[in-house]
């Protein structure tokens, strides 16, 4: 059984068809990278998985269970999400950003939650910033906190929506390093990214999307070094300059 099964996924915004039929599985421990030009539907696909966008048609299964409006809140606790613009809660301290989810959604023991949150901050190298507010952190630090926040819920998979696109270039590395460590530890990850180097190094599978379809998929080497489709070649020639 796959961890995520996507079947016949379609999504339209009004008359605009963004996803035109996506079928895709993600296996446990797999790192799936989604690449493609902007407007290709890759972020929309990711957001449909945890229903931040309501699919127009198609089904999503997590651990074999169909995701519906009714069970979405409990399904989301299995899927962490990391956003392009971090979306940390500005009125909460760094530590509180990590604990507010588990405290209110899982209602577990407060001391344990705090202890675990501190361990996660250590893991992303920000234990010293636990009592700071997000506005006092750099972009790279904020995104590392956002990853720790997602991990605090003990998710089975983490969805990354262009996690480094809003960062200054010198901060991209520190975020990618945290993500590489996660991958090594066997975390299941779905990553929408423009970082081809990261995809080549870390991904088990790469999908190239364009015009609402999956155009080509395979190992990083197959898709990124030896693309078969003309549109993939065209795209890669532009980003790899």
């Amino acid at each position: 059984m796959s961890m995520i099964e996507i079947k016949g996924l379609e999504k339209s915004f009004g008359d605009l068809e963004v996803l035109k039929g996506i079928d895709q599985n993600v296996e446990e421990g797999e790192v799936l990278c989604i690449v493609g030009p902007s407007g290709s539907g890759k972020s929309t696909m990711l957001r449909c998985i945890n229903r931040l966008e309501e699919p127009t048609a198609g089904e999503i299964y997590i651990d074999g269970e169909l995701v519906t409006d009714k069970n979405i809140d409990s399904m989301r606790t299995k899927m962490g999400m990391v956003f392009q613009s971090f979306n940390l809660f500005p009125h909460k301290s760094v530590l509180e950003n990590l604990t507010i989810g588990p405290l209110n959604v899982k209602k577990a023991n407060e001391a344990e939650i705090k202890e675990k949150a501190m361990k996660l901050l250590e893991r992303v190298g920000l234990a010293a910033k636990a009592n700071e507010y997000p506005r006092n952190l750099s972009g790279g630090q904020q995104q590392r906190v956002a990853i720790a926040r997602a991990l605090a819920m003990d998710p089975e998979v983490i969805l990354f929506d262009e996690p480094t696109s809003a960062l200054d270039p010198e901060m991209v590395g520190e975020v990618l390093d945290v993500m590489k460590d996660l991958a090594k530890e066997g975390m299941t990850m779905v990553v929408v990214t423009h970082e081809m180097g990261f995809a080549k190094e870390v991904a088990n599978k790469v999908i190239f999307m364009d015009g609402g379809y999956i155009v080509e998929q395979g190992t990083p080497d197959a898709v990124l070094n030896h693309p078969q489709e003309a549109r993939t070649k065209d795209f890669l020639s532009k980003v790899l300059v």
Binding site: L52, R76, T77, S85, N87, L88, G101, N104, V105, A150
Partner: peptide, 17 residues
């Protein structure tokens, strides 16, 4: 910012929460 609602919901919070 609507990203705040999305981030909260992605942690499994209900709309009211």
């Amino acid at each position: 910012d609507k990203g705040q609602m999305e981030a909260a919901r992605s942690l499994g919070m209900t709309h009211g929460m």
